[in-house]
């Protein structure tokens, strides 16, 4: 798809900008195990409602469980399978949510 081509470009640019600005990235760009706090969801009204009710909503902590398409994220204690097209529209702030190490999670 030509579409994915443009997206790759956008993503690459975003990443460069993100690392310069600090830690703003989309959920699609996170590696497995990385976390962030949702600071923007830019999708149509129907998807927005759906995502919000499942916890993909401003201020919630998101962790990437599996990359790819569809990908899996963990939010509000449950795992959500998410089309990559949507994950690209979910903007996360990584600084606000340092991921606890696996060891810390296990201790919990």
């Amino acid at each position: 798809m030509e579409d994915s081509q443009t997206h790759t470009h956008t993503n690459a640019r975003d990443r460069a900008v993100g690392s310069a600005r600090g830690e703003i990235r989309t959920a699609a760009e996170l590696a497995v195990g990385e976390c962030g706090v949702v600071c923007g969801v830019d999708v149509g009204a129907i998807e927005l409602e759906r995502l919000q009710m499942m916890g993909l909503c401003l201020g919630r902590r998101v962790r990437v469980v599996k990359a790819g398409d569809p990908m899996i994220v963990s939010v509000m204690g449950s795992r959500i399978a998410l089309a990559r097209a949507l994950a690209r529209r979910i903007v996360l702030n990584l600084q606000q949510a340092p991921c606890r190490s696996a060891a810390a999670q296990a201790r919990e």
């Binding site: 998807e47 449950s78 959500i80 399978a81 998410l82 089309a83």
Partner: peptide, 9 residues
């Protein structure tokens, strides 16, 4: 088509 959003229990 609409993109996937599904909880995995």
């Amino acid at each position: 088509s609409r993109p996937l959003v599904l909880e995995l229990p």
